[in-house]
Write a protein that binds this DNA or RNA. Structure first.
Lengths: 347, 347
DNA sequence: TTGAAAGCGTTACCAT
DNA sequence: ATGGTAACGCTTTCAA
């Protein structure tokens, strides 16, 4: 069914030279005579010879691809623009090193299997938690790996944002606008793993919003949502049907922009004005946050830059054997129009 | 700098069995005695042995990854949610076959190099044009490949939308709303290739909008934009500064949603009301199109489904050696609120 | 059920 | 500058 591959051998025979010479022609053209080079290339072209990248990899031990590992399906992972933005950042570095990116999702719900099978030079794991068994497998693979958005041991390469601080600042902003009854929509853990365990990022952000709310007469109402538009819509519907009598929620703090966009969509469908009827904030500053109206007030976390940092780190490790252990990015409050002021007598 | 890898050999020696037996333990556990299996596994675990996927690939000739090929950098390609959506569709199929996806962008501006180097089982090429030399290289690689969004020879596997028809319908809709002076923002070709040649998709869409406008006293004003938010903003700025005296453009038809979102952003920044001051339509129906307000009227082209179709096709070829040659998806007009009605006396 | 040996297609090392 | 030969680490006959 498939033609027999033409190998370097065929070329060598046809050209009347050794395999080495052919190999040189492709990899170090300057080391052989122009005449022989041309001959080899002509024959290679006629025979439609293409070097087998796998065989090359076996000897060079360089695959030319970085694995991007995440604990969800590709379908799910890319429903949040966050990952695409991260990917852009990583890609902007990979291109400098002529490296591809291999998207590695769990196989048969087992991320360990995927890690074992992936032919890559290094892994960038996003959203992996240290308690996960994947970590052991990752270590066993004997190739470098770094983590994005994970709280890890000292000796593991990590790129992370100051999520707790970010959440703290964001909540302070909301409170300073006079809000007292505040819904917080947190991130539902990916169900592939221990469903009872929240992600480190989520924990950090909850810690931050809680710390900001502790001293005042502020009431936080916690909700939980899948990281998607639909999740946000569902959570919003719950919030608006559930608000306890007497106390009306005036603001929704979403621990992820994509959730906030879901809330926006719900509000649009229910003729709820933002920020007139309800204030909304997000977290991340994905590209869509500046496109909706009013613009979404959010904690920017420089996703693209985070990807670049991770990319730089990975290639530094690959090339020099080591790197800074941990990069921590500072978030930044982006004020757009989705947060309204509440006067005391409004309550 | 890197530890010596522990190989199947080490395990065999340590366990006092042959390499074959160890290999069986990992691949056909049922064929060896439970006792030996356990022993091997225990030793493998202690030594932190992980089979080398590259070596495996060299013999099995299955890499476990599909290459997604595009003629731009990853950074650029993923700035349009279109690709992420396509990826989601492809990913939804790959997961069924335990396959990863390798993102293959040009190396040193040379997509051919990237094609040669990528260790993948098959390629899905998006936005490649047949006149490009890449096609020859793709063929030479002797692995299956299919094209998305390309006009190709008969015998090449292709998934495409009826872009011309879609553009025709869309433009008809705009005209039926009374618009007569219409700006069309088309897609600037990716500059990696012949810059003077437009993409097939773009050609088709232009053909469609033109065909719809030919009989009436409709004036099309053509502009050109990079497929990005920024591109859309720039084009909008040009349109609003350029509109010829006397004749005012009342509607902007963007041949891609992402461009339309850029136009939205420009309008928001310049206090231009959509559709009050200007009507806007898009093409594709990316997720963001339903998030902005007013919702973007656009030609939906079922991007996710397109990805799924491509994924199915590729695995069918891989598994059976062949498949349907060409899948053509029908687009669908999605009316939201961005298209306003023009009364004759408005003009 | 287990073992020996032959590939898989390349690159790398050491001569010449 | 060119050639011979040994890896690279696994899977897969074929025998035992």
């Amino acid at each position: 069914m498939k033609k027999k591959n033409v190998t370097i051998n065929n070329i060598a025979v046809a050209a009347g030279v050794s395999k080495t010479t052919v190999s040189f022609a492709f990899n170090y053209p300057e080391r052989i005579s122009k005449k022989i080079y041309d001959k080899i290339m002509r024959i290679a072209e006629n025979l439609e010879y293409v070097p087998n990248p796998i065989a090359r990899t076996l000897t060079t031990k360089k695959d030319g691809s970085i694995g991007l590992l995440f604990p969800q399906s590709i379908e799910k992972a890319f429903s949040n623009p966050y990952l695409a933005e991260l990917l852009r950042g990583i890609g902007s570095i990979c291109i400098e090193y002529d490296s591809a990116i291999t998207l590695v999702a769990p196989e048969q719900n087992d991320i360990g299997k995927a890690v074992r099978h992936a032919a890559v030079d290094a892994f960038i794991a996003v959203g992996l938690e240290e308690y996960m068994i994947t970590f052991q497998i990752l270590k066993a693979r004997q190739i470098p790996f770094i983590c994005i958005d994970a709280v890890t041991e000292e000796d593991i390469y990590t790129v992370i944002s100051e999520d707790e601080l970010g959440a703290y600042i964001l909540m302070n902003e909301v409170i300073s606008y006079g809000h007292r009854e505040i819904a917080v929509i947190s991130l539902k853990p990916s169900k592939i793993f221990v469903a009872t365990r929240n992600s480190a990022v989520n924990d950090l952000r909850i810690k931050g919003v809680s710390a900001a709310s502790v001293k005042k007469e502020v009431n936080l109402h916690f909700f939980n949502s899948d990281c998607s538009i639909e999740g946000g819509m569902d959570a919003a519907s719950l919030i608006f049907s559930n608000s306890s009598p007497g106390r009306k929620i005036t603001s929704i703090v979403c621990l992820s922009d994509i959730i906030a966009l879901g809330v926006y969509k719900y509000c649009a469908e229910h003729k709820l004005n933002i920020p007139g009827d309800i204030s909304v904030c997000g977290f991340d500053d994905i590209p869509g946050a500046s496109l909706v109206s009013p613009g979404l007030t959010t904690m920017r976390q420089f996703i693209y830059k985070k990807g670049r940092s991770a990319g730089k780190m990975v290639f530094e490790i690959l090339n020099t054997g080591t790197s800074i252990r941990r990069i921590c990015l500072k978030p930044e409050l982006v004020k757009r129009g989705s947060l309204g002021r509440i006067e005391i007598n409004d309550l």
